[in-house]
Amino acid sequence: MIRKKPAFFSAVVLVTILAFAVPAAAQQAVPDLSRFGFGRVVASADLQPGQAATVGNGEIKAEIPANAFSDPVRFEILQGENSTFQPYAPAGEVVVTNFAFRVTDLKTGQLVGMFEAPVKAVIDNPAISTSSGYYDVEPGSPIRITKNPVPPEISGTELVHPIKGAGVGWVILDPAGAPGLPETGGMSVGALVGGVLLLAGGVMTLYLLRSAGSRV
């Protein structure tokens, strides 16, 4: 005779399975990076499977290979304010620029976390130098900035880096990235100040000579 297991036993098993399955699913959820500082859509394009494209706004562009997606997607480039990320940057580093990708599967409406082929990010910014670093912005409360393990390729003011997914955002940091003193009329501010001081010294000398002459 086969004895049936109590109903409560099956319920316990089901609850146990769900307890482990739900956290795993939550961990795999793709974050919407517009909620973590990247609030502006600066470029967007709808792509079909097998379609190669370049999406960008001038400073930042994504070179997307034809085999990156097997479903139709909306590919968006997001940006925020550098000041949002600066408090989380390592000491001595200045945020030059920031960006993130948001990719939506147009069939399911779900965000895409991983790409089927790497997308190439190309950033052209006059503050980029050979000392610039490429850092991940990990979503959270608060966000966390960590150095990406893959060094970028830098040529002049252009930085290139392969990207395999949209689970984090990115910032470019540079120890000399802070805007320098502006130039005025082709002359640096330092030179201009020096010239003013020199002129002031000449005027003072002339005044003293005239004063001395008036007392002779």
Rank of each mutant, 00 (worst) to 15 (best):
T104I: 13
G109K: 06
T108Y: 07
D124R: 15
V112P: 00
D124Q: 15
N148Y: 10
G113M: 05
S129G: 12
D124T: 15
A127E: 06
S132E: 03
G113N: 04
V103I: 13
S132K: 03
F115R: 02
I128G: 02
D136M: 14
N148A: 09
L111H: 01
E116L: 12
Y134V: 05
P126H: 12
V137P: 10
K107S: 08
R144G: 10
M114F: 10
E116G: 09
I128K: 00
E116C: 00
V119P: 01
G133L: 11
V137S: 13
P142Y: 13
M114N: 14
R144W: 05
I143K: 07
N125V: 09
I145A: 06
I128A: 01
I143Q: 05
Q110P: 03
L106D: 03
K147W: 03
P149I: 07
F115H: 02
Y134L: 12
N148K: 03
V122I: 11
Q110A: 10
L106Y: 02
P142S: 10
T146H: 04
V119M: 02
S141R: 08
V119W: 00
Y135A: 12
P126L: 12
S131H: 12
M114D: 15
Y134A: 05
P139T: 05
Q110N: 09
E138G: 03
P149S: 06
P126A: 10
A127D: 06
